[in-house]
Design a protein around this nucleic acid. Structure first.
Lengths: 209, 209
DNA sequence: CAGCAAAGTCTACACTCGTAGACGTGACTC
DNA sequence: GAGTCACGTCTACGAGTGTAGACTTTGCTG
């Protein structure tokens, strides 16, 4: 758990700032941008609310840094695009079981979608990190469209299975769900469903930097 | 548009209550449960904030009625399960184009997901209306699982394409998106991907490993 | 036309939120 | 060991929220 009891930290700006940031990640992921209060974040970090604004300028700036921190490391680490659908399906299933308490970036996105400012910050982050990184793994034309489509499907499963918590989907047998999601994701990222192959073929293999 | 200018309505309890409810549908769908204020809802209906509580008891009760009103009519009206994937894909694509301003129940769900109370109300509504109705159309075993899975995928597309607004997905060619979504949805609701057909058929024994 | 219950409004309360400025206090340097 | 500057806290403000009770006005009915 990331719930430190007030750990009597000696005075250290860097450590305190890191503690606040970590606490903010937890709070924003659990309650969303509007749902998490500055005082609550500060208390979990063992400081006062004012220090949050002193180090991060404002709640919005803090959220911006949280999004960066959370989206920067690769969430999905696929080795090759062949087994991508399977691996994503497997990971997603595991992280969205009722018992799991994984703090996923998707939760942060879902729970902050109601606030327009936070939403815009998340959108920029998604495109800059997850979308681009995923698109680089997809062969065929228009990889960005298929990568964002895959992200959207993943987000949807997170939403209904873990946030909203609809019963049938939440209680679904992991093996069954994984197998079915693999089919679904495969259809989403397949190079071409049935359209002629000449459209936008030029950029195949164009690795991003 | 549902934005009435204060239309000088004569005193009529039923009409006023209906106006408040309609205004609440718009406000909650646009801003979510927390984002929409009682005063704002009342003003759009041409009344004072107090009247809202007088007629609906509380904001939460109002939201409950809104969810009922919004989820009761069938959003997706498929004739048969064969063309279901295609029709859903088509409708979803049309409603999530950047130009469209359709107030969809999915938006209400997405934007209210951050609030636990509202979330629970939405969950109950989804299961009671959309999930059950959709499941009735799906042949094969465990239709509830596949119906909720389809709903989750739809929600995900709504989220990224219309709420978050990621660029590639939002700008995607409607025909391309429809075609691809049809494949995806087809994989989600297909009676059985590759598992033997005897599983889940006889659930009286409950021998699910 | 008069009366009266219903429809609608006004004022106000208790609370939470993010944030600004003034004020202690700790740890490191000479 | 004393000075000093960064680190951290305290008090408080202004705006916003949902809601309760007392008040006023309207439309219907006799």
């Amino acid at each position: 758990m990331t719930l430190d009891p007030p750990a009597e930290r000696p005075r250290n700006a860097a450590a305190t700032k890191a503690a606040i940031l970590e606490s903010a990640v937890v709070a924003f992921t659990r309650s969303g941008y509007d749902g998490a209060g500055v005082r609550e974040i500060a208390q979990a970090a063992g400081v006062t609310a004012m220090l949050v604004n002193r180090y991060f300028g404002s709640k919005e700036q803090l959220f911006r840094e949280v999004v960066d921190v959370v989206l920067a490391p690769p969430t999905i680490v696929p080795e090759d695009s062949a087994t991508l659908a399977h691996r994503v399906a497997e990971t997603l299933t595991a992280r969205t079981t009722p018992e799991a308490e994984h703090l996923d970036p998707f939760l942060l996105m879902l729970r902050s979608a109601s606030n327009p400012r936070a939403n815009e910050i998340v959108r920029a982050g998604i495109e800059r990190y997850a979308g681009r990184r995923l698109a680089a793994l997809l062969p065929g034309p228009r990889p960005d469209e298929r990568s964002e489509l895959l992200l959207s499907l993943i987000a949807g499963v997170w939403l209904l299975r873990k946030v909203v918590g609809t019963t049938a989907l939440a209680a679904m047998e992991p093996a069954d769900l994984t197998r079915r999601l693999e089919e679904v994701f495969g259809a989403a990222i397949a190079p071409d469903p049935d359209e002629p192959a000449d459209r936008g073929r030029a950029e195949s293999g164009g690795a991003v930097e």
